[in-house]
Write a protein that binds this DNA or RNA. Sequence first.
DNA 1: TTGAAAGCGCTAACAG
DNA 2: CTGTTAGCGCTTTCAA
Lengths: 343, 343
Amino acid sequence: MSVTIKDIARVAGVSRGTVDRVLHNRGGVNAEVAAKVREIAEDLGFFPNRAGKVLAALKQPMTFACLLPSIGNPFFEDVIAGFRIAERELSDFGLSIDIKEVKSFDTETHVNAIRELQEKGYSALCITSVDVPQVRMALEKTIAGGIPVVCVNTDIPDCGRLCYIGPDYYHAGKTAAGLLSMISKDKQELLILTGSFNILGHNERIKGFLQGLKEKNVPFEIVETKESLDDDDLAFTVTTQALTMHRQINCIFIAAAGVEGACRAVTKLKREGLVKVLTFDDIPSTKKLVKKNIISFTLCQNPTQQGYQAIQKLFAYMIGNQKNPPTDSITNTIIKIRENIED
Amino acid sequence: MSVTIKDIARVAGVSRGTVDRVLHNRGGVNAEVAAKVREIAEDLGFFPNRAGKVLAALKQPMTFACLLPSIGNPFFEDVIAGFRIAERELSDFGLSIDIKEVKSFDTETHVNAIRELQEKGYSALCITSVDVPQVRMALEKTIAGGIPVVCVNTDIPDCGRLCYIGPDYYHAGKTAAGLLSMISKDKQELLILTGSFNILGHNERIKGFLQGLKEKNVPFEIVETKESLDDDDLAFTVTTQALTMHRQINCIFIAAAGVEGACRAVTKLKREGLVKVLTFDDIPSTKKLVKKNIISFTLCQNPTQQGYQAIQKLFAYMIGNQKNPPTDSITNTIIKIRENIED
DNA sequence: TTGAAAGCGCTAACAG
DNA sequence: CTGTTAGCGCTTTCAA
């Protein structure tokens, strides 16, 4: 049995209330007494018991708010699923979760959403947003107001967030290059399709991909680079144009959404098998295309784990689990081909 | 705030003690009263609060025993790491873990180990063993004696175990075939290296691999099939022999341990690049060989997760988390190449 | 500035 | 057969 505040109180010759006050820096304790208590706690190797804390905390239930640019983006469904799993597991520890969904990565929308959540008095925030000054400032203010924040899927460094849970985009791009170098030794005539030139993650994937090709000595040429704005119809249009104009294209690297649209163009032009398609994530439409062999492989980032871990880490922090202080958690780059796409 | 036994007691007009007795089928309660309590609990949607249970359970701390054939097999180090992570997380819920390591899959050793653990009075067992009648009987007896059992990594069905946590070996073999079909269209002249013809998992991997090749219409011939007994030196010997006798071999499928030995043979005979090597798991020596491009890819099964989940599930069951009754959990088939081997 | 006590939800020991 | 009570570790409130 491990050491409790009761033990500390006994050894220090004070009451449990006093120990509690000291350990939470709640003030109103004689400095000498406080020092003594702290020393004893240290000596005895005291760690608060989570079960006790949780039980006591039940009187003031917690609610976390999650902000996601998920409207119209199926990718986030799995992140939300992760949130919900964690919520269910932690529900009888007094936790509940509200999810605020917005459309797109528009700065103003995000800033407003963050303000709104701050004002509503949530216990903590879990957000996917954009790393721009306005958002960062809004977050800094929230955090200064005592509301901890974790970033999921997209990091916003230097705003005082607790930690980041999500993928390493650059590395994922590089892995795509590694795999491509295994499945083909030909010169790669590339069509690069990105969501937006303004989104860091997409750019990082492309950078990693090109760097990986260089390191692997894969001969390649970038025939075209296009934005899809994560829209399937636009992706269809630009892909059709590119494939028609440049018959030599034999590989499409899709750094973002728009996968279904681009693949529609490939099949419409009857280029299946002639053009390799490399993608990210495994939303339902992408899964289907992997199964149909239109997509060679897709690199996934464990969205459900991201959501799950974010909530768990936040909760552990709130409850004061000092054994595991929050640290960044980079999700693995998971290679999926036809055979393991349903895992 | 959710419904508690206190609520049930109040509504039923009985004491909390009685409710507790009914809910735990501990007997000694008037049948009518019991029925009424049960009905009310059902109506109110009662789920016991884990924090409360855990706190009360602290008076009788639990110890789980884990049985692993891990001596001399580095694969299990990650499984053990998973055990330890779970133990740390659950330590202030009163859990501790003892690990019993044995060498090899010898039946008698396992039966004796199981008997020993049973007699030592552990709260529950978490085992990796062999699916043979003697072991199954030993487990049935343990379970009948009230000690729940989960199987990790290797299943032993029909013995009354709570659940299985581990890979789908057949499926992993099939995935290897899928990947191979992507990286090479040539006829595959195969050397198949297995650990033992008696170990189900190894056989399943081979079956899945061959079935996968057929489905993908990959032309192939099995030049040789050899046992390594999971021993690197033996693997080196048989691989050297096979590669020397049959110069046409261009692909080695290693269904078990012995990876380092087989690869040593490949480099010694200067066949790197000419012979593709396909392996499973990512023990340190395998990682190195993937980085050196000797191994084309290796298929992993998340051993750390296996260990972690096994303990978590067992604990959840013991504490009576009725929201998630224990179910099998098949770990993903994780493809690792040079670029993501360090994930 | 400090102590004492109540209570979070549950279990178990003891009375009756 | 059933109720009462104490207590798991912690927080919080009320007194002093």
